[in-house]
Amino acid sequence: MSERLSTLMPARLRPLIWPLIALAALLLFNGLFTEGFARITIKDGHVYGSLVDILKLSSRVMLVSLGMTLVIATAGVDLSVGAVVAIAGSVAAKLIVQQQIGLPMALAATSGLCLVLGAWNGTLVGWLGVQPIVATLILMVAGRGIAQLLAGGQIITVESSGFSFIAGGHFLGLPFPVTMVALMLLLTVALTRGTALGLFIEAVGNNETAALFAGVNPRAVKMFAYAFTGLCSGMAGIIEASDIKAADANNAGLYLELDVILAVVIGGTPLNGGRFDLAGSLVGALIIQTLTTTIKMRGVPVEYTLVVKAVVVLVICLAQSPELRKLLLQRRASA
């Protein structure tokens, strides 16, 4: 059945089919059995409801997953994204509250710094040949410490209506972070598919030696992927700080890397690199958030949350595994 279904879709969308089915199933389940899930209200021209919450709450994971998709496509991984989120929050808060340099300058400086942090990862992985897990582990550990030092061990509160708008404001009726995700998606697609970068990233991730021999510069390609992920993490950090109107260096972006990597993998980009799917990663992020929201709304005791999440993720990953599908098909054929 699945084979027939997938042949109906354009080839480009085929890898997306499994994550989409999973998301649709989750939404359908909630629509039928979770009271109030599908309810949408409009107040002051703004849309509210669980579905809108899911979009807003998943925006951080979605943003970072755009960069992470590229990193994973080069056969790497970036564990430092959560720490960069914390640094971004601390830096933005400090610049706004203590330096008072104005919101646009503060945001630009924060984003620029996060780009540099990503480039640091890119240097370690691309130029110095450090294993991606080890290289980014350095910033993962050190980065949170830096964020805490910057904040002086305190939570810096930010009273700025402009800053609060980033996470709390609305644009076209939807929460503003949704707009940020949409713009970053457009930018990422333009950068990777509008230029030859996407081809180079996939070539490097799929067979680095062959790409090198064909004249691609794997170092530069990796540098781009990690630096871009740094930028994405910075934006996610700004949203997070804006959401709680404060920079909490201890908790901002904690364990974010795991959700993001999961989103990318659920979205159909293989961890061993090569072909990548940006839209798939966004769907993956939505699946994770829908799941979390479902668990909360259905009143499942909090302590079960992680277990339920793990089981659903396992099922989705198994459904995607070509080996398992082959095995099941063989069984059916022999039965």
Partner: peptide
């Protein structure tokens, strides 16, 4: 030489594009 998952087209244009 071969980038296995990429298409024949992408494999052919890679060096020129690079």
């Amino acid at each position: 030489a071969v980038i296995p998952d990429l298409s024949v087209r992408e494999n052919i244009v890679l060096a020129l594009q690079a």
